[in-house]
Each structure stands twice: as C-alpha cells, then as structure tokens.
Simulated scan of single mutants.
Amino acid sequence: MKRKSTILFGIAVVGLAAIAVFTQKQVSEAPVDGLSFMGEPVTTDEIARGQEVYAANCASCHGASLGGQPDWKRRLDTGRMPAPPHDESGHTWHHADRDLFTITKLGVGGVVPGYESDMPAYEGVLTDEEIRAVLVFIKSTWPDRERAFQANVTANDQGGS
C-alpha cells in the first residue's frame, strides 16, 4: 500500500510539473496586447530574446537604456550623425516596421541610397528573426502614444517611407 501511494504521489508531482511547464509556455507564447510587427503578433519570449540580442549588438552605440549617443541631433566631425535613441525621445517610432527592419538588416543606405552612416548592416550577423526580435523589444518599451503612432505609420506603409 505504501509503494502504491508513493507511485501515485510521484505521478501527481510529474503531472503538476507538466501542467506548470505547459502553462508557462502558453503564457510566454501568448500574443502581447497592442504590439505587433508587420501585422504579426508578438510574444513575451520574442521581446525577451530581442532584449538579449539588443544588449549584445546594439547597446554599445544606442545605449543600454535605448538613450542613444550624446548630442545625437548634431553631426559628428565626420559629417555623420551619432546613434539616435530608440526610446520615445528619439525618432525610431516615426518609421514603419518595414523601414526599421531594412535599416537594421542593410544599413541606412537600404532605405536612403547613398546616405553615409556609422550604422552597420546586420545582414549575415543577425538572422531575420533576431532583427525582428530586437525591433519588437524596442517597440515594447514605447509609451502607448508612440506605439499607436508607429502602428499607424506601419499600417499606412506602402513599401517604404
């Protein structure tokens, strides 16, 4: 009888653990309300992954807190612009998802041909999924007003701005 109770207890523990893992997976894979990327839903897992990729690849120029470089509106001695902030104080939220993706993947020249920038192209460095995750993370930090404005710009995008 004691062995049967031990086995039943073990099965119950394994069952509860499986439910906990399944529930956590459902929560982390659930779409985040009010946030999408190119019309597709975004998950909390994707935001967390984007934060990691941002920290490893973007924060050195754009700041750990997305604040950009000092005097980001004033040209450097090279004639190029400093890295702008990606928080609500910058202008990232003025651009459609497609343009943000293209700038990240191909560099600013991918959207503005001939424009010289210190922004590297991340094609071959980051996967498309990683670029999307970084942009999703950035968007997740914006206040509702900026997020709504950017969603409208994205909805009205006809292939570039």
Rank of each mutant, 00 (worst) to 15 (best):
K2N: 03
S5R: 12
S5L: 07
L8Y: 00
F9I: 06
F9H: 01
I11P: 07
V14C: 05
A17H: 08
A18P: 06
I19F: 01
F22G: 14
T23H: 00
K25W: 15
A30R: 13
A30V: 10
D33L: 13
G34W: 03
G34A: 11
S36K: 05
S36C: 11
M38R: 14
E40S: 12
P41Y: 09
P41H: 12
T43D: 12
D45E: 15
E46L: 08
E46R: 07
R49A: 00
G50L: 04
Q51T: 00
Q51D: 02
E52L: 01
A56Y: 00
A56S: 08
A56K: 12
N57W: 00
N57M: 00
C58I: 07
A59E: 09
C61F: 04
H62T: 06
G67S: 14
D71A: 09
D71L: 12
W72C: 11
K73W: 11
R75S: 13
L76D: 02
P82I: 05
A83H: 07
A83L: 06
P84D: 05
P84Y: 08
P85H: 07
H86Y: 12
S89N: 15
H91Y: 14
H91S: 14
H94M: 05
H94I: 05
A96Q: 02
A96G: 07
A96H: 08
R98D: 13
L100T: 13
F101C: 02
F101K: 01
T102R: 01
I103D: 00
T104F: 01
T104H: 03
V108K: 12
G109W: 02
V111K: 10
V111L: 01
S117C: 08
S117G: 06
A121T: 10
A121P: 08
E123N: 06
E123P: 03
G124R: 08
T127E: 04
E130F: 10
I131V: 02
R132I: 09
L135V: 11
I138K: 02
I138W: 02
K139M: 13
S140R: 03
S140D: 06
W142P: 14
W142S: 15
R145I: 15
Q150M: 15
A151R: 14
V153G: 13
V153T: 14
Q158P: 00
G160N: 12
G160H: 09
